[in-house]
């Protein structure tokens, strides 16, 4: 008991330190940011395996040290057309809670974490954004579903979109979208 309590304290401290830290990245002409606590690692783009019959925004899967991780083209997911690959393109591996509905609001224990990769045009830097510099999400003008946005961060007089990872990469919703695509043969039946 004692042991775990002490550990909790340590975790809390680091969480506080990191809570205001965001990784900013570029998608087309826009800047986005994701809370650093969601990020597992950043890897070079490549070695993607396409999974057939999936919606366009699912670019495929990669092998991340033995586990098979889906990769999402955020640009398509956000209705901005396919990402243009360049030398700076990379995959950001995020941890998403796949049992979102129950855990997100109640703040109860995180249940099933799933790794998901997103393709970004370029990773910029890790920034500290204080809560006072964060404005609530505007209801229009971002060309993005409002629920995907956690807030707008002010950085050097410009705004970056802070992503609500839990919503933007909702595993359940994406699975449903994926199930709509059916192989041709299916239509013959019935």
């Amino acid at each position: 008991m004692k042991q775990s309590k002490r550990n909790d304290v340590v975790v809390m401290q680091t969480e506080q330190a990191n809570e205001q830290q965001y990784l900013t990245f570029q998608l087309g002409q826009e800047m986005f940011a994701v809370g650093i606590l969601h990020i597992r690692e950043i890897i070079e783009y490549g070695n993607l395996t396409t999974v057939p019959l999936m919606p366009d925004f699912v670019s495929g899967v990669i092998n991340l040290r033995g586990s098979v991780v889906p990769v999402i083209d955020l640009s398509i997911r956000f209705s901005r057309g396919q990402s243009q690959l360049s030398r700076r393109t990379c995959i950001v591996i995020l941890e998403v809670d796949s049992a979102v509905s129950c855990a997100a609001d109640s703040g109860s224990e995180v249940s099933a974490l799933q790794e998901v990769g997103i393709i970004v045009d370029a990773v910029s830097e890790v920034l500290e954004i204080a809560p006072k510099d964060i404005e609530p999400a505007p209801t229009f003008g971002t060309r993005l579903r409002a629920e995907f946005i956690a807030g707008m961060g002010k950085v050097d007089g410009a705004f970056v979109i802070l992503l609500n990872v839990q919503k933007a990469l909702n595993v359940e919703e994406m699975a449903k979208l994926a199930s709509v695509v059916e192989p041709l043969e299916q239509s013959h039946y019935g």
């Binding site: 019959l53 999936m54 699912v58 699975a175 059916e182 299916q186």
Partner: peptide
């Protein structure tokens, strides 16, 4: 996860 509904795989 997101592939749970895929048919044929």
């Amino acid at each position: 996860g997101i592939f749970s509904h895929v048919k044929g795989l």
